[in-house]
Design a binder for these strands. Structure first.
Lengths: 304, 304
DNA sequence: ACCCATCCATACATATTCTTATATCAAATA
DNA sequence: TATTTGATATAAGAATATGTATGGATGGGT
């Protein structure tokens, strides 16, 4: 059942050489020496029966084999990191680092308040926040907790449904004073529109909107929702934004409020971390904080 | 960025002690000696700052900390196994082991033919086949390729859609001779019915069937679809079965053929294995074999 | 053209780690 | 009760891995 395995430490050296580009650099990073790393790579090549690097000027050049092994080795590293975090979360006290990932807008506009409150209660707690729209972070175990806008697709997760987040079209009042407030969807074609660039998921969502939107020409495109928000705030034009976020800025005006659309939001955590007090605390705080935010945006979305 | 980490090999010893229950047993399994394992555990405890085991008669007793660390350590092992499989698939020749997981019926009724043909072309190829309805196998990287009846929920997968598999009600002709052929759905209540026991996913599928089925009483229940098939073949009563599978047995009769229902089928593989010739070959063979089977069951499902 | 920095390979002395062998303990068995 | 089995702990020698020092090669800068 347990087949013979190369010493797992060899993979660590392998990954280090891969990421740092040379034996020497890898050795410095790992606190070892260049001959040691050299021997590790030799040994790994021998045991795997695969050539991993070829000498080149300025370092080692990874072979195709090494490149195709790399993602696997990174999985190993992710798992090792995970163990370490899990172990350091076993104390009875809430201390140490929790790694959270979230979409960029939520991370910048909503989480800071939640996390600040949390930290006040747990001064020994440290937070790492990784922003981005990639969903894969949690799969690769690069984070402990994820705040996401897509339905969780994994089984082994602790999932809390927050609710539907309202999105709407917004513009700065200065812009509207300049260009006028559109009265119908059709009127949007006359405006400066802020839209999605390439992101497949966002484009798919665009498809599900009323047809009138499909004819719109976006004169500014970005896949970074934060950039959208910044452009809206700068008065560039009309763009989509979370209602709850937009409502905080009195200068932003809800354009065509009858066309709000919704995305779902979730907080998820690995099941394996359920017993981890530290993660548990952050998870609960995120759930309750997000739910508060959800309630606020909900009342804000009411007609004024 | 790269924080200090305990030697990854220590986790291997940890997991071995955990699974084998004692230092000595773990040492035997790993091909090391008991004092070595003892020092590894001590060292890991020191570095993690956690007590992992307490002495007890007959071995070491894992603490709660060790138990909650266990799934993480198993992830590490799964990742290490994966590397090894990936590495051994990098030769230019198709040789070595590929691990396939599939639902039990497909695994027993459909795959043997496909895999036998495949092996004829690649004599150095070895196949491991893990049957079961759990979907999680692929997530944990316990298998290279999965043949599944549920829509793949992960991103980093190579996915091939096979098609919809027709399910229908079948019974042995002897049974029907004894108890008669039901003419309407309502007539099923008079029959010996073979149904699902507890499996939540299957029960959910039951809910989506016409209402008349909900009143049915199943006098035999099992979550093993293979058991259903065996009971049908034995003439116990009427049960659901894949049309393509049932058609192979001339003694099985399609009952109420107007009520066939469908499930989707897929073949999936890790994206990381795309460059792995060995896995690639098996993947392609499974896809083409499953599609053949799908075509056959499709024509078989036609009215006779 | 020269020098310098950076890289890898090799040889040898040193540290560390593993194994072997032995002692000790606990529980089950006769 | 004595004995056997299987467990962990410990000490010392053997095996292995690491670090240091050095040489050779390559490319960039002066």
């Amino acid at each position: 059942m347990d087949g013979y395995q190369p010493d797992w430490g060899l993979y660590r050296s392998f990954l280090a050489v891969l990421t740092h580009g040379s034996l020497s650099a890898a050795a410095r990073a790992l606190g070892l020496t260049q001959p040691t790393l050299g021997r590790h790579i030799d040994e790994l090549q021998r045991q795997l029966g695969v050539t991993l690097f070829t000498r080149s000027s300025g370092g080692l050049l990874p072979t195709d084999a090494a490149l195709s092994l790399r993602p696997h080795a990174e999985n190993l590293k992710a798992a090792a990191d995970m163990i370490l975090r899990a172990a350091s979360g076993l104390d009875e006290e809430v201390r140490g680092t929790v790694r959270v990932t979230a979409s960029d807008v939520i991370g910048v506009e909503v989480l800071p308040g939640i996390l600040t409150d949390l930290r006040r209660n747990y001064p020994d707690l440290e937070i790492e926040l990784a922003l981005g729209n990639q969903v894969e972070d949690l799969l690769r175990r690069d984070a402990d907790i994820a705040v996401r806008m897509v339905t969780p697709r994994q089984d082994a997760l602790v999932v809390q449904h927050i609710g539907e987040i309202n999105l709407g079209l917004f513009a700065h009042c200065d812009y509207l004073a300049r260009k006028g407030m559109p009265q119908h969807i059709e009127g949007l074609v006359e405006h400066d529109l802020i839209g999605i660039d390439r992101d497949p998921q966002d484009r798919r969502m665009m498809q599900s909107l009323p047809e009138a939107f499909h004819n719109c020409h976006f004169s500014f495109r970005s896949d970074q929702h934060l950039a959208h928000l910044a452009m809206i705030r700068a008065g560039y034009g009309i763009g989509a934004c979370q209602v709850g976020v937009a409502r905080r800025d009195p200068n932003l005006v809800h354009v065509l409020p009858e066309f709000s659309f919704v995305i779902d939001s979730w907080v998820t955590m690995h099941e394996d971390l359920r017993n981890n007090l530290r993660c548990r605390v952050v998870f609960d705080a995120l759930v309750s904080g997000m739910k508060d935010h959800w309630r606020i945006q909900r009342t804000a979305a009411m007609p004024i």
